[in-house]
């Protein structure tokens, strides 16, 4: 009989890993809490840095998981697991239990809840939205203010819920900078006459072709970049948003009226995964993501033998990295099952 691997989470990492595992001869159960597979990918419009449609990636992943060895369980929340010897028993919310030889957690991330940064007015002022809200607008091809008007000036606010002790997240989510630049370009393409500004603390464009995208935003789209963290947002009598920031490079405070403010929400360990980790004694790092056994050559393993990690449940990762990470998890699992589960 084929070894049986249970994959928890049907996003990018889970789908890629499930497909690869099946092709490596494993029998796989892929459990997804939502109705559909695809995770956050289904919410994005175009992906950075090349602005390819997220649907294309989704199509690829769907192709990956169409395999006879893969059993899909959607709409099922994993509530916990126990392991006896080398066997894992996963229980789900509707009372089912599934037995397997290895466990792959691909639980992904949650977006930071921007309401928690009250001073930015999300949920208080109608034209303050998050990067995810903007992607949804892109997908619907309806980028507009609540009043239905075209935005003339749009601000992107970096580091919302990232690099912020005040919300307990000291780490950098690392994708928001490039996302902001990508979104700024998209907005400019829709509204060429609009003015777009990014408010940043540091531009962290450390991926392949990111810096090129940054340059393109400046060169072709005249996106403005202001170095300073916005402290608070208010509305004025004209019902326009007013962002307060220090233009740190000039060394003077700056007030700017905006029609729309996009909060670049950071990535956090998913709440469900935190609950699962606490219940099953899986170690989390200070950033609450799963703590890898080793930062150099053990990022797919944790503190429980036979439990593997893939994707953004270990750290903020982009799609490219998530897919690579899922593949390396597959290698680790195959190795584990073939060499006596040590």
């Amino acid at each position: 009989m084929n070894p049986h691997v249970i994959v928890i989470g049907g996003g990018t990492a889970g789908m890629e890993a499930a497909g690869r595992l099946a092709r490596a001869g494993m029998s796989v159960t892929l459990i997804e809490k939502g109705k559909d597979l695809g995770g956050h990918l289904r919410d994005w419009y175009h992906l950075f840095p090349d602005r390819r449609s997220s649907d294309e990636v989704l199509e690829y992943l769907k192709g990956q998981i169409s395999h006879q060895n893969i059993r899909l369980l959607t709409g099922q929340q994993v509530t916990g697991f126990i392991h006896k010897g080398n066997e894992f028993t996963v229980s789900t919310g509707n009372g089912d239990t599934i037995n397997g030889d290895a466990l792959l957690l691909a639980t992904g991330f949650d977006l930071f809840k921007s309401e928690r940064k009250e001073e930015y007015g999300y949920g208080i002022y109608e034209n303050v939205i998050t990067s995810a809200d903007l992607e949804a607008m892109f997908r619907k091809k309806e980028v507009k203010l609540v009043s239905g008007k075209k935005p003339e000036r749009i601000g992107f606010l970096h580091c919302v819920g990232s690099r912020d002790e005040k919300v307990g997240n000291i780490y950098c989510s690392k994708l928001c900078c490039v996302t902001a630049v990508k979104q700024a370009i998209e907005v400019k393409k829709i509204f060429p006459a609009s003015k777009v500004f990014c408010f940043y603390m540091d531009m962290r464009m450390g991926g392949a072709l990111y810096e090129e995208l940054y340059k393109e935003a400046q060169e072709k789209y005249s996106v403005g970049f202001i170095r300073g963290k916005v402290s608070e947002v208010a509305v004025n009598i004209n019902n326009r948003l007013v962002a307060k920031v220090e233009d740190t490079l000039v060394g003077r405070p700056l007030k700017m009226e905006l029609d729309m403010l996009v909060l670049m929400a950071g990535m956090e360990m998913s709440e469900d995964a935190v609950r699962l980790a606490k219940e099953t004694n899986l170690q989390m790092g200070e950033n609450r993501f799963f703590k890898p056994a080793d930062h150099h050559f053990g990022t797919n393993m944790g503190n429980v033998n036979g439990v593997f990690y893939a994707g953004a449940c270990t750290a903020p990762l982009n799609i490219t990295e998530t897919i690579s990470h899922a593949r390396s998890a597959v290698t680790e699992i195959v190795n584990y099952l073939n060499t006596g589960r040590k």
Binding site: E118, E119, G121, I124, Y125, S231, E232, V233, A234
Partner: peptide, 9 residues
């Protein structure tokens, strides 16, 4: 209170 716009509003 300027940092808690919901109170102000």
């Amino acid at each position: 209170t300027h940092l808690t716009p919901s109170i102000k509003k």
